[in-house]
Design a protein around this nucleic acid. Structure first.
Lengths: 346, 346
DNA sequence: TTGCGGGATTGAAAGGTTTCAATTCGATGG
DNA sequence: CCATCGAATTGAAACCTTTCAATCCCGCAA
């Protein structure tokens, strides 16, 4: 065994490969591979020798070669819509939990609502031959999603449904969520209710409004006042607040249902800043139940999505599709739940 | 050219490779590769033929083989401390910006403050031979970081400094940040100031407190009252609020400097809930200037970290280290900045 | 002594791409 | 019509690992 004088890790030029390890340990290539992949088949003495050689040479498996030879990698990826939104990072945490227990690593990519970036990441991930891709797409009907799946990489749509039966999806029933919010407000005695949200091109916003209207109709209450926003951000929520408060007092809604918590937080701020009280002057219901909802100045009533489970179920589906030959595509729909707090209870 | 009758993408068994494309297009292997990598060298006619073949066979480059042969991949990775903290996702956005302009993809991994997960991801990424790794480590002095770098994958520490000169790092001067916060409060006439934060094992918390003390000492003001917390969360902030308000009025601090915005938001809530006014009864300064700081019930004064630039600089360093032979390691320190809002201005 | 069983080890082949030196082909100039 | 040149194309080698059939070795039973 010829020892090197250096710190034993350095390698001047090239990184050490199995071949180097084999030579250094005085065994064959195959044996080194066996130590790596089926250690029980190699005698303890040899194994120790090889392991020491690997340590001394600073050997690191080359994943590219490894998986070139033997099928697939142990990596999942989640392409998320907006990494800055706590909702999606929570979904990611759920995915990661499942991935980890199956000894997979999870790469997260952020499309940031940009279609070109989404496409770029998908292409990169397919080239990388990841085991499966989870994605919250900008447009769930976009053909490139299905085409990735058809090319052999399992794809699961997260937090959106798709009509395409060749894809799995896991979503939360937004229509139901809308109904829940409105029913709660009706229960609390409100009749004039506003909906704050937009643009309607966002599927979730659309569905939540539909649900709200259904709830009202079922109760025979008057239709909802829609205050359309340009995005679902705190800033837009504040502006919606201005518009809402500008209405004549007599016909001003006594409650508002917001398409998500960011809007609700903005609205809340604006209302409080105007000297009005929540919920006495205006009750507010948000959506998502992100962490900051419960931590707001007036804790927000919100429709909670089981985001952790959303991630978990999606990860399970993608893993099933990856290694279960007779996998059948499913469209899972989870149920939301209303969390009542001060902003409607007073 | 024998056309298939199917939708042209399906391939029953195996995914199409360059070899299949070559055969289908009636050219040699090398030509297909040229179309892929040096399209200008192949005649337009041939190029079109090959491109069509690729489209019809649904050919997707095998990144593993590609990079096995030719050195490296075009991927960076960021191992972040806590994906749920908006601060880190903003840093990630900065990294991504630089990565994208260099035609790199960015994979994000979340250690979630767990050392084993951090180690797991680092190992996976090295095996994957990514071009470079950015990491906000749990412990910046941990030997495995330097050892990854020594094995040949560039590593840059983000939002932490390290004594190890063999690593690059980009951080923000937390001591200065602490001074800024305290000086602002002194300017506003406060003398009895509290520091809310902990545990001290977190480097940032320690540094910010040190800076605060320096600021006070320089002004000849009395020492700071430390209210130690167990974590830097909203919940802990609320509890710190209880303790703070429990102090006898005469000796109760008139201002609080919090180690981060989550703590500050919790403190704010607790104070408001107790019927006291911010900033009249208690002025509050936070740290990080996360989005929700400006959007709080009482907009928070906060020490802003240039988190976008943090990410950008770090990404530039890692790219430089990756392809610039005579790269020299640097420890970059950026400057924080105070953003004054209602919570101290009244 | 021979034959045999079985665990340990070996070495060549395969996997899909890129690279590069070598070859082909057509055109240009003499 | 030949020589030459450059552009286009080719095909084999290399990248690093895993797999698997083949070989080796040793002890043990016959």
């Amino acid at each position: 065994m010829l020892k090197r004088s250096s710190t034993s890790i350095e390698n001047g030029d090239r990184m050490a490969g199995v071949k180097d390890v084999a030579a250094y340990a005085g065994v064959s290539l195959g044996t080194v591979s066996n130590v790596l992949n089926r250690p029980e088949r190699v005698s303890p003495a040899t194994r120790r020798k090889v392991e020491q050689a690997m340590a001394e040479l600073g050997f690191v498996r080359n994943e590219a070669a490894r998986h070139l030879r033997s099928g697939r990698s142990r990596t999942l990826a989640y392409v998320m819509l907006d990494a800055a939104n706590p909702f999606f990072t929570d979904v990611a945490a759920g995915i990661e939990e499942t991935a980890e227990s199956g000894h997979f690593s999870l790469y997260m990519c952020n499309s940031g609502q940009r279609a070109d970036r989404e496409a770029g990441y998908l292409a990169h991930l397919v080239e990388q031959r990841v085991q499966g891709i989870l994605v919250t797409p900008i447009d769930p009907e976009a053909p490139h999603l299905a085409s990735v799946a058809r090319r052999g990489t399992p794809v699961v749509i997260v937090d959106r449904t798709t009509r395409d039966e060749s894809l799995c999806s896991v979503a939360v029933d937004d229509v139901l969520g809308g109904s829940l919010a409105v029913e709660h407000l009706l229960d609390r005695g409100h009749q004039r209710i506003a909906f704050v949200g937009g643009p309607e091109s966002i599927g979730q916003v659309r569905d939540r409004l539909v649900g709200a209207r259904q709830g009202l109709a079922a109760a025979g209450a008057p239709d909802i006042t829609v205050i359309e926003t340009l995005a679902t951000t705190v800033r837009e929520g504040r502006q919606a607040g201005e518009r809402l408060l500008g209405l004549a007092r007599a016909k001003r809604p006594t409650a508002a249902f917001c398409a998500n918590d960011l809007l609700a937080l903005g609205l809340l701020q604006q209302v409080v800043a105007s000297g009005l009280r929540v919920p006495d002057d205006l009750a507010i219901v948000g959506y998502d139940d992100i962490y900051f909802a419960g931590a707001a100045a007036v804790p927000l009533t919100s429709v909670r999505q089981p985001r952790h489970e959303l991630g978990r179920r999606a990860a399970e589906l993608v893993l099933d599709e990856a290694d279960n030959a007779d996998h059948v595509h499913q469209q899972v729909v989870l149920l939301p739940e209303l969390v009542a707090r001060t902003s409607t209870l007073g």
